[in-house]
Amino acid sequence: MTIAPDDERQGTLLYQQMRDVVQRLEDTVPGKIEITKEGLVHDMTAPVGPHELTALRVRKRMEKVMPDELVAHTGSPDVEDDSEGILRLPDIMVIAEADMEVPGSFDPRTLIAAVEIVSRSNPDNDWVSKMRDYPLVGIPVYAIFDPRTGTGAVMTEIHQTPEGPRYATRKDFLYGEDVTIADWTISTEGLPRYA
């Protein structure tokens, strides 16, 4: 679904309706529901062991090298930009602890980085939709870890294109190599793969 700029009021109403649906369903359906520029995305399967273990190991490795006032947060709340009609829940959010002291959703522009572990059931959500949505809401660094292939990428340097803001730089990596996310370098040794 695409909303034309002159349909701003209708777009705001539609976004609020989708937001209400997400709130009603979040405790009653498995998986995770997010709102993208195209509409609702439902990742129906709950994260499996390799997904969660990757998130845990990356989070712990990031927090070892970051300053104390920053965290690699996993869990709720989500990040929301209602002006763009986007509600996302990154697997890991690198954010200042002070920026977490807000009621409700985090402002995506306060994130230093978003890290996603690719879902086996819906890889396009991470490789396509979030690649479009994260620069649109101002997240300066987007890192993807893909347990399906043992690869990943870090996207940086948001710039304007005819299609809207996009990341200008992409650095691919293989599991086993060191990877730099924002200002911090971590090892990808020992990250699990999907069987």
Rank of each mutant, 00 (worst) to 15 (best):
T110E: 04
S105V: 13
R88I: 10
I86K: 00
E80K: 09
P103D: 15
P108E: 03
S76Q: 07
D81G: 05
G75P: 09
E84T: 07
V94S: 02
E80A: 04
E63F: 03
R109S: 08
F106A: 03
E69M: 02
D68M: 04
A72H: 05
A98F: 09
A113C: 11
A96T: 08
D91V: 12
E69Q: 12
T74P: 14
A113P: 01
F106W: 04
G75R: 08
V71D: 08
V102N: 12
D81R: 04
F106M: 07
D82L: 05
D78A: 11
D107W: 10
E63A: 04
P103G: 15
L70G: 14
H73D: 07
P67E: 15
I112A: 01
T74C: 10
T110C: 07
D82E: 15
L111R: 08
M93I: 10
A113M: 07
T74M: 12
S76L: 14
V94K: 01
L87Y: 04
D78Y: 06
T74Y: 05
G75V: 15
I92F: 00
D82I: 06
G75Q: 11
I112W: 01
E80M: 04
A98R: 15
H73W: 14
K64E: 13
G104F: 13
K64N: 10
S83L: 08
A72G: 08
I95H: 02
R109D: 01
D99Y: 04
V102G: 10
P77K: 10
D81F: 09
M62H: 03
D107A: 14
V94L: 04
G85T: 08
P77A: 12
P90A: 14
A96Y: 11
L111M: 05
G104D: 10
P103M: 15
G85F: 07
I95G: 01
D99I: 06
G85S: 05
A113F: 11
P67T: 14
D81H: 03
K64Q: 14
M100E: 01
V102C: 12
S105W: 13
R109E: 08
G104L: 14
G85D: 03
M100G: 03
P108L: 05
T74H: 02
L89S: 09
P108V: 15
V71Q: 12
M100S: 02
E63H: 02
L87N: 03
E63W: 05
V71A: 07
D107S: 14
R109Y: 05
P103L: 14
L89M: 13
